Amino acid sequence: MVGMRIKRLRMEKGLSINELSEKAGVSKSYLSYIERGIQQNPSLQVLSRLAKTLSTDVEDLLDQRKNSDDFDVNHVDSEWMELVQHAIENGVTKEDFAYYLDFIKFKKMNGGHE
C-alpha cells in the first residue's frame, strides 16, 4: 500500500507529517489521508513531489514487492493474536491501533522517556 510505504519512509527520515507536507507542497490533511489509506490513488504529481522529498522515486513508492510492511499472520506469536483479539472485543478500532502505534513511534523517535 502506497500510504504505508510513504509513512514508513517519512518516519525513517525523521520527518513529521507537517514537515513532509510543507517540504513536498502537499496539504497535511491530504497526506494524512494517503498514509491512512483513505486516499488510495493519489495523483502522479503528488506522488512525484512526495518521492522527491523522500529521496526516492515514484516507482519505489508504488513497488508491489513484499516489504517490511507485509507480514505473514502464521508467524505472529499467539500471545499477540490473543492481545489483538481481546482489544477488538473491547472496542479498539483500527484507527485506535494506528493512533497508539504512531504515539509509540513518536515516543521512540523523541527519546522514549519523559
Rank of each mutant, 00 (worst) to 15 (best):
V84G: 08
K28G: 02
N110D: 11
G14L: 10
L54I: 08
Q85F: 10
V2T: 12
G3D: 01
G3P: 06
G91S: 13
E79N: 12
Q64G: 11
I88Y: 07
Q64F: 02
D60N: 12
Q40Y: 01
S16F: 06
G112C: 09
Y99N: 12
A24E: 03
F106D: 13
Y100C: 13
I38T: 14
K105Q: 14
T56F: 01
E19Y: 08
Y99L: 13
L62T: 06
F103C: 08
M81R: 09
G25F: 13
K13S: 07
M1Y: 05
D60A: 14
G111Y: 10
Y100L: 15
T53I: 05
M109F: 06
K13T: 02
E12N: 08
N18E: 14
V92H: 04
F97K: 02
K107V: 06
D70P: 05
L47F: 01
E114R: 11
Q40I: 09
G91R: 06
G111F: 12
S29K: 13
K107C: 15
I88D: 06
F103G: 08
R36Q: 13
R10C: 05
K94W: 12
N18P: 00
T53G: 05
E35M: 04
Q45W: 06
R65P: 03
I88R: 12
K28V: 11
G37Q: 04
D72Y: 09
A24W: 02
M4F: 07
R10A: 05
T93K: 06
I38A: 07
T93D: 09
L31D: 01
N110H: 15
F97Y: 07
S78K: 11
R8L: 15
E59D: 15
Q40V: 11
E22P: 00
S55K: 15
L47K: 01
A87M: 13
Q39W: 03
M81N: 07
S16E: 08
L20W: 01
T56R: 00
E89G: 15
H75C: 10
I104Q: 12
L9Q: 10
M81L: 15
K13D: 05
E19A: 15
L31T: 00
K66P: 09
Y99C: 06
N90P: 03
E114Y: 11
L47R: 01
D57Q: 00
S48W: 04
F103S: 12
D102V: 02
F71E: 11
N74V: 09
K107H: 10
Q40P: 00
V73F: 13
